[in-house]
């Protein structure tokens, strides 16, 4: 949700290291990051803070998972990948490595997925031809019935 970005960021982990001079914090072991409705689970998270207080978060995991509620709807966007880069300046979450994003029954799979938490739009790239899925992307969109509901009949 849009209001997420103004909420406090809560991080829990096994260990943490704060480098005051560089403004870098590294969290390791069962790392959970929560900001409003957004939640990230990872093995390791590095948070960098610039002088203006903007944060850049790099999460690594097997996989990293994240989910966030859709603005004004009772729907969730869920994503996963080997790595997640998120910055509060552009509000972009970039999933890299076996990346996938799911919203309701719609599914997008690719090598790199860039998700804009503002506009809730995402862009997917396949990666190199020699890479997984031969560099192709997969998008599965569920048909929408006439009244706008999802056609869930088998």
């Amino acid at each position: 949700e849009l209001a997420d970005r103004d909420k406090p960021i809560q991080i829990t982990a096994d260990t943490g290291t704060l480098d005051q001079l560089k403004g870098i914090t590294v969290w390791k072991g069962n790392v959970v990051v929560v900001q409003g409705t957004m939640k990230v689970n990872a093995a390791e998270v590095t948070v960098t803070r610039d002088d203006k207080g903007n944060q850049t978060l790099v999460a690594l995991g097997k996989p990293v998972t994240f989910k966030q509620k859709v603005e004004g709807k009772d729907e969730w966007i869920e994503g996963q990948g080997s790595r997640l880069d998120y910055t509060t300046v552009t509000n972009l979450a970039v999933l890299t490595g076996n990346a996938r994003i799911k919203r309701n029954q719609d599914l997008v799979v690719g090598n790199v997925i860039t998700y804009n938490t503002n506009t809730e739009q995402y862009e997917v790239k396949g990666g190199s031809a020699t890479g997984p899925n031969s560099g192709r992307v997969t998008v599965i969109l569920q048909p929408t019935t006439v009244n706008g509901g999802k056609n869930n009949k088998p």
Binding site: Q10, A13, D14, G16, T17, L18, D19, L21, W27, G53
Partner: peptide
């Protein structure tokens, strides 16, 4: 001197933007 804080276990942070 190194400006380094290490949290040994059960680390938890609630960061509020200044």
């Amino acid at each position: 001197k190194a400006g380094l804080v290490t949290l040994h276990s059960q680390a938890k942070a609630t960061y509020v933007k200044p």
